[in-house]
Design a protein around this nucleic acid. Structure first.
Lengths: 156, 156
DNA sequence: CTTGAAAGTACGTGGGC
DNA sequence: GCCCACGTACTTTCAAG
């Protein structure tokens, strides 16, 4: 996790390939980007060690895991002191249904993305999870009708 | 991409490990979940073929790639006929800065998550990209102050 | 589910352009 | 920087028991 000095064009091509397929073997990756195995492997390693590559993950199908629906919820707190923001944010992040959670500018709110099973799962999440968190003032939910794009990372 | 019939406890453990580390070797994975190599590999393959595992990806550091900031933008269209919704959504998804794009319930809007470099990059995105899309009526942006959680998939 | 065996891969080392 | 070649240990992948 040192510095990440210069990322050249070849690095970007490596990143592009590994973002598409995180299990590419070094041999195939080298072929794709037009290097031989050794320098390619050295670059991948450097990208990992400098933290440009943060890790690798299997991408799982939400539907197959029984949580087909996605809800975006804007959350407003009663108070906005540092302690409150920290503790509430931590509690949000610990809920397994919450896939993403962001602290936002503006009125010091959160936006969270939640995976649920239908309106019933949504109601259960609200009543048994979100509404039990102390300090919540208000929430406003929107169901996702269609996911048009969902990238794991920015485009290299 | 056939059906995904029953996912048992062992499958879930496999998925949990592979979500954490998508490059785990089958040998180590088998050890982690308490199987020997072959049955473990058969399960992984079945999970891949049934679409439960959608793929594997390297996770890239947004900051290292020069787009350290994230903006959430609510987008409202002028008209909401099917053709418009489809074409606008497609145009949104094609912008490389857009990492996620959702079509929402309510007033038939989009929410997009965009990676930019500071307020300057944000302004450029608005002027040169978003505002050039035909049919846009209104947009409302919020900067992300802190990312509290960002999972690639739902928890298995 | 286990064992086994062939092919491929990772990862290092050392030489050379 | 890059390529090439070699080497060991590990992994994948597929039999067959």
């Amino acid at each position: 996790m040192a510095q990440s000095p210069k990322i050249d064009d070849t690095d970007r091509r490596i990143l592009r390939e590994l973002r598409r397929d995180g299990r590419l073997s070094n041999a195939k990756l080298a072929e794709q980007v037009g290097l031989s195995a050794t320098p390619c492997w050295n670059r991948v390693r450097a990208l990992e060690e400098s933290g440009v590559i943060e890790g690798y993950a299997a991408l799982l199908n939400q539907k197959a895991l029984g949580l087909p629906d996605t809800v975006l919820i804007e959350v407003t707190l009663e108070r906005h002191d540092d302690d409150m923001l920290y503790r509430f944010g931590k509690a949000l992040a610990e809920l397994p249904e919450v896939m993403e959670a962001y602290l936002l500018t503006g009125e010091y709110d959160y936006l969270i993305k939640v995976a649920v099973a239908g309106t019933q799962g949504y109601e259960e999440f609200l009543r048994h999870k979100l509404y039990k968190l102390p300090g919540l003032r208000h929430s406003r939910s929107t169901f996702v009708l269609r996911t048009l794009k969902r990238e794991t990372s920015v485009e290299p």
